[in-house]
């Protein structure tokens, strides 16, 4: 006995169910944030087509007493397009080849 297929009225879908699709395994490359270069300008956040970069607090405080932030990539969804590394004006994101694609 298989499980019943649940279908909705007129194929209405629930919001944001795409989040269960982990697209992080699509690409051959992945971005690495060089935290000491990151100015938390947010460019990578704005450009990322996969909405998988956010600015997070480092726990440190800068010279003006503001909480330091840095770009953080959610690798569950990153497709490795490299847009973030291209738009970064501070050389704070470099692309690396995934281990399995090396050699």
């Amino acid at each position: 006995m298989g499980e019943k297929l649940r279908i909705t009225l007129g194929a209405v879908s629930r919001p944001l169910e795409s989040l269960k699709i982990k697209t992080g395994d699509w690409g051959a490359e992945y971005p690495v944030v060089i935290e000491e270069n990151c100015k938390a300008c947010g460019d990578c956040v704005v450009y990322c087509p996969d909405l998988c970069i956010e600015l997070v607090e480092t726990g440190e405080v800068d010279e003006k007493g503001r909480k330091k932030k840095v770009a953080k990539v959610n690798y569950d969804y990153c497709k490795g397009c490299g847009t973030c590394s291209v738009v970064c004006r501070h050389d704070a994101i470099k692309m690396e080849i995934k281990e399995i694609y090396k050699g």
Binding site: G10, A11, V12, S13, R14, P15
Partner: peptide, 10 residues
């Protein structure tokens, strides 16, 4: 209030 998606493709 309940942001459903209408007209999904199957």
């Amino acid at each position: 209030k309940e942001p459903y998606t209408f007209g999904s493709y199957a």
